[in-house]
């Protein structure tokens, strides 16, 4: 029983990270109806931004409390991610408004490759260590070992989700985002500045991905330019699992996926699936969900109209 709880805790912290990335996919899909392939690489950029900000800021903030430094690094990485996300949208995706979906998809693949190989040029291909932002303590709760980093990641994710919900539900910008995802033409006619809203959405999604990058790096302590590829794809699966375009669905899908993946690896002996199949789990889920309920767990099915 303890082992089950242990796996659930590990799955929850991994799932929180997937959820943060998945939210970006879902938001961009909501306003632009396209899958931003390069989203996983913004997660990588976030992790490297965390590494470099820590290096540069360390002398300046000597003597500050650890949590203050961690907060500054996290927010500067998020800002960096947001700015990069907006730049990418302006340069690569904006000229393609109204073009066939496939053209945009290929461009997104190009942007993804560009970020990965520029990262390889700039940071080197070898994995780098990530500094400890907060001293890790291990809490033992009835035999279940929980690292304080796991707790921090889950709590910070929850706070970010609450903040996101506030932005989307209570602010004018959020209202404009929801209007745009409901009906772009009508939203534009009602005076919504479409371009600004799309940029804002990209910035918001990319900031969340960058935050996820810092969390992931803190949990696993190693980062490299290609670290975003698999988590990015898995987060996309999470977004589809919950119902793409639905914010709560992305969060739910991310956490579910994290838990399922951890359980499959943890109980590989019982299930008869070798732990090496870890990375296939997400794709099997994706194929099953697209075949049996393409609208996702929380989505309503829509008929395609001509």
């Amino acid at each position: 029983m303890n082992e089950l709880f242990q796996q659930l805790v590990n799955g929850l912290s991994l799932g929180a990270i997937y959820a943060l990335i998945a939210l970006g996919y879902t938001m961009v899909y909501g306003v632009l109806r396209f899958i931003n392939f390069a989203h996983g690489d913004l997660f990588m950029v976030g992790a490297f931004a965390g590494l470099y900000f820590h290096k540069w800021l360390k002398p300046a903030v000597a003597g500050w409390p650890d949590w203050g430094v961690a907060l500054i690094i996290l927010s500067s990485a998020m800002l960096m991610g947001a700015v990069l996300g907006i730049i990418i949208e302006r340069l690569a995706y904006k000229p393609l408004r109204g073009r066939p979906k496939l053209t945009v998809l290929i461009t997104a693949i190009g942007v993804s490759l560009l970020l990965e190989y520029l990262g390889q040029l700039g940071f080197g291909a070898a994995p780098r260590g990530f500094p400890t932002l907060l001293e890790a303590r291990t809490l033992s709760l009835a035999g279940v070992r929980i690292s304080s980093i796991q707790v921090t990641v889950v709590v910070a994710t929850l706070l970010l989700l609450v903040g996101l919900r506030f932005i989307v539900m209570k602010t004018r910008m959020g209202l404009a985002m929801r209007a745009l995802s409901l009906n772009p033409t009508a939203a534009a006619l009602m005076g919504v500045n479409t371009s600004a809203v799309i940029s804002f959405t990209f910035g918001l999604g990319s900031a969340l991905a960058a935050a996820a990058g810092v969390f992931y790096a803190s949990l696993y302590q190693a980062i490299d330019p290609f670290m975003g590829v698999l988590p990015g794809m898995k987060a996309f699966v999470a977004a589809v699992l919950g119902g793409i375009g639905i914010l709560s669905g992305a969060a739910l899908g991310g956490i579910l996926l994290g838990i399922v993946e951890t359980l499959v690896v943890g109980y590989s002996g019982v299930l008869g699936i070798p732990p090496g199949y870890r990375d296939a789990v997400a794709f099997v889920i994706l194929i099953l969900i697209l075949l049996f309920k393409p609208s996702g767990l929380l989505g309503k099915s829509q008929r395609e109209k001509v």
Binding site: A92, G110, V111, L113, L114, Y117, L118
Partner: peptide, 17 residues
């Protein structure tokens, strides 16, 4: 080698636009 994929990626983006 390390510039090859950067060039291809840029080519892909510019070509699509």
């Amino acid at each position: 080698e390390q510039y090859r994929m950067v060039v291809f990626a840029l080519l892909l983006i510019i070509l699509m636009i």
